[in-house]
Computed example of a mutant assay.
Amino acid sequence: MSTTATKLVEMRGLKVAFDGVQVLHGIDLDIARGEAVGLVGESGCGKSVTWLAALGLLPGKPSVGGSVKIDGQELRGAPRSALEHIRGGRVAMIFQDPSSSLNPVLKIGGQITEALAIHRGLRGEAAKKEAWRLMDMVGIPDVRRRFDLYPHEFSGGQCQRLMIAMALAGEPDLLIADEPTTALDATIQAQILDLLISLRAETGMATVFISHDLGAVSQVCDRVCVMYAGRIVEEGSVGELFANPRHPYTRGLFDAIPSIDGPRQRLIPIAGTVPDPRSLPQGCSFSPRCSRAVEACRHELPPLVSIGDGRWLACTRPVSQAPIVVETKGWIAEGAMQ
């Protein structure tokens, strides 16, 4: 959790259960103004559920507990009118599949101007000109002509750019990007990442980047939270955590990354899968897959504690401080540890 004084978001003890099955087990997380935070982990770890719960967007009737505040305003239990002001206005979210997020029977221009009308009160010619500006900002060419096109007339990468334009329509303080590059090819992924970086620099908004891609996280984020089975198990700055991952799960994620240079070697996968939330292990949830686990790990749940230098760790038998070199897209983390 961040110790920054200028907190935008404060999350404390966030818990979620579906039909009595606990899937989030008390998430504590702070986001500072202008900060970029990455959430990484395998599918089913609770990354997306954390923010859907925070914004009241979970389907059905889940049981949600804990506290989520933005600028001191409590979102948990807030009336619908207050949440509608926050969602899209203060906090915007983009998803990994833009084709399912854009309305296929409405023109793009109408979808962007609708967001402008709701969150900024712009209508008519003023809304159209602002929509053109947003489309141009995210890299859509020939905006005046394409304003009246339908989503299917754009490529996948352009649809994702349009989703980002809609998210920016409310001038949010926080942008949550939920695996926004998953369905795109490598070249378009790099363009979307560059766009997110430049938009953050231009607007000063904070960013939460949810991804499986450690290379993408290294490019976009200042701080990283590693999630496993509904809990944060390690947290730290990108430089520190990438150079010296201490949790066995985090280290396993790095060991499974193929090396671009050097001899061809077999990848080292993490055995097994994320446990079913209906039958979690009694102690550390990662213990059945962990080569360092001892008997105590199977009976005692380690708390998330500070280990200094802004690092947080939930493990009783952390990985020793060993050198690690991680090759990612245009970025190399090197650790010269003792």
Results as ranks from 00 to 15, higher is better:
Thr3Arg: 15
Thr4Tyr: 07
Thr4Lys: 13
Thr6Glu: 14
Glu10Cys: 00
Glu10Asn: 03
Glu10Phe: 00
Glu10His: 03
Met11Cys: 06
Lys15Met: 14
Phe18Gln: 09
Val21Gly: 13
His25Cys: 10
Leu29Gly: 01
Leu29Lys: 01
Ile31Leu: 15
Ala32Phe: 06
Glu35Lys: 08
Gly38Tyr: 12
Gly46Gln: 04
Val49Cys: 02
Ala53Pro: 09
Ala54Arg: 02
Gly56His: 01
Leu57Arg: 02
Leu57Trp: 00
Leu58Arg: 03
Lys61His: 15
Ser63Lys: 13
Ser67Tyr: 00
Asp71Trp: 06
Asp71Lys: 13
Gly72Ile: 08
Ser81Phe: 07
Ser81Ala: 15
Ser81Tyr: 07
Glu84Pro: 00
Arg90Asp: 15
Arg90Asn: 13
Met93Phe: 13
Met93Asp: 05
Ser100Cys: 13
Asn103Asp: 15
Val105Met: 09
Lys107Tyr: 08
Lys107Ile: 06
Lys107Trp: 07
Thr113Lys: 02
Ala117Thr: 12
His119Asn: 04
Arg120Cys: 10
Gly121Leu: 07
Arg123Asp: 08
Lys128Ala: 10
Lys129Met: 11
Glu130Pro: 01
Ala131Leu: 06
Trp132Phe: 15
Arg133Met: 06
Val138Asp: 01
Arg144Ile: 12
Arg144Ala: 15
Phe147Ser: 04
Asp148Val: 05
Glu153Leu: 13
Gly157Ser: 12
Cys159Thr: 04
Gln160Asn: 14
Ile164Cys: 05
Met166Ser: 08
Gly170Trp: 09
Asp173Gln: 15
Asp173Thr: 14
Leu174Met: 14
Ile176His: 10
Ile176Trp: 10
Glu179Lys: 11
Pro180Thr: 05
Thr182Asp: 07
Ala183Ile: 13
Ala190Met: 06
Gln191Phe: 00
Gln191Ala: 01
Arg200Thr: 03
Gly204Tyr: 11
Val208Gln: 12
Ser211Pro: 08
Ser211Tyr: 07
His212Lys: 05
Val217Tyr: 08
Val220Ala: 07
Asp222Val: 03
Val224Glu: 12
Cys225Pro: 08
Met227Gln: 08
Ile232Cys: 02
Val233Lys: 05
Gly236Arg: 01
Leu241Glu: 00
Leu241His: 00
Ala243Lys: 10
Ala243Arg: 14
Asn244Arg: 14
Arg246Phe: 01
Arg246Met: 06
His247Gln: 04
Thr250Glu: 06
Gly252Met: 00
Asp255Leu: 14
Gly262Thr: 04
Arg264Pro: 02
Arg266Gln: 05
Pro269Ala: 03
Ile270Asn: 06
Pro277Cys: 14
Pro281Glu: 12
Pro281Val: 14
Ser285Glu: 13
Ser287Tyr: 10
Ser287His: 14
Arg289Tyr: 10
Arg292Gln: 13
Val294Tyr: 05
Glu295Arg: 12
Arg298Val: 09
His299Met: 11
Pro302Gln: 00
Pro302Asn: 03
Gly308Val: 13
Gly308Tyr: 10
Arg311Gln: 15
Gln321Met: 13
Pro323Tyr: 00
Val325Trp: 02
Glu327Thr: 01
Ile332Met: 10
Glu334Phe: 09
